[in-house]
């Protein structure tokens, strides 16, 4: 029983982390109807920001996630203005343009920071574990804190989209750009802010991750792919859908890794994703 609970909780922590990473992607997809292929590289860039703040200035990830989120907000805005804007509405062009951007960011990091794995030591949460029932169940604090951040950020995002004037404008833009414009919504501003906020969300995850994960140029690739699965499985721009899909993927990963074999965990994740998408072609919450 303890073992089962342990695997379940481990899956939950990864699931909530995936939800936090995927939230921004889901928002961008929902509003602009494009896949930001550089999403994983955004995460990687944010992790370097947090890592170097910790390494050079001894700022803890618990603080530097703010800087990382701000940095990715800016990167999101710049990406929209200079990479995405001109390609909107041209079939595969936004996806390929952002793929080009992902190559630029990843190889720039490779060139400047070397492919080495960089581990930040001496962080506040380093190695802290909450042990329940005489060590039957272990809860690593950094993962728990990230999971809590995820719930808060997703909650805020959902609140913003459904309860504020800005959120209504975003939803209107997502439904029909022309109509929203006619109603006086500055859709261009919405697009810029959505890209910025989407970046900032993944920036929160990126800022926290160096407290328990090594930073390297390729760290974003797998996370990016999982974020695509999460968003597609959750359905077109649906935040609750993304959260549910993320937790599902975290649990599949954890259970397949433990009960089948660690090497099979991503095969299981991608396999289940393919099955779900066959039954619900537009995702669990898609329409």
């Amino acid at each position: 029983m303890g073992l089962f609970l342990q695997v379940l909780l481990d899956g939950l922590w990864s699931g909530l982390l995936y939800g936090l990473i995927a939230a921004g992607l889901s928002l961008i997809w929902g509003v602009l109807d494009i896949i930001n292929f550089a999403h994983g590289e955004f995460l990687m860039a944010g992790m370097y920001v947090s890592f170097f703040l910790g390494f050079l200035f001894k700022i803890d990830p618990l603080v530097s996630w703010v800087a990382s989120a701000a940095f990715l907000f800016l990167l999101g805005v710049v990406t929209y203005k200079f990479v995405v804007k001109r390609t909107l509405g041209k079939a595969m062009a936004p996806l390929l343009a952002t793929f080009g951007l992902s190559m630029v960011i990843k190889n720039f990091a490779m060139n400047r920071f070397t492919p080495n794995f960089r581990i930040l030591s001496g962080t506040i949460m380093e190695g802290k574990v909450i042990s329940l029932g005489q060590g039957a169940v272990m809860i690593p604090v950094p993962n728990l804190v990230t999971a809590l951040f995820s719930l808060v950020v997703l909650g805020l995002l959902y609140w913003m989209l459904t309860r504020t004037r800005f959120g209504w404008a975003v939803q209107a833009t997502a439904m029909d750009v022309e109509a929203a414009r006619l109603m006086g919504v500055n859709t261009e501003r919405i697009f810029i802010l959505v890209f910025g906020i989407g970046g900032a969300c993944v920036g929160v995850a990126a800022g926290l991750l160096p407290s328990y994960l090594a930073t390297h140029p390729d760290v974003g690739s797998l996370f990016g792919l999982i974020a695509f699965m999460v968003v597609a499985m959750g359905g077109f721009g649906s935040i609750p859908g993304a959260l549910l899909a993320a937790i599902l993927i975290g649990l599949i990963e954890s259970f397949a890794g433990f009960y089948i074999a660690p090497v099979f965990k991503y095969v299981a994740v991608f396999g289940v994703y393919l099955l779900v998408i066959m039954i619900r072609p537009k995702g669990l919450f898609g329409w």
Partner: peptide
């Protein structure tokens, strides 16, 4: 250093798509 060719490759893709 490594990766410069791929940075240029990526920039070209971005430019063409624009």
């Amino acid at each position: 250093g490594p990766g410069v060719d791929l940075v240029i490759f990526g920039l070209i893709i971005i430019l063409v798509m624009q």
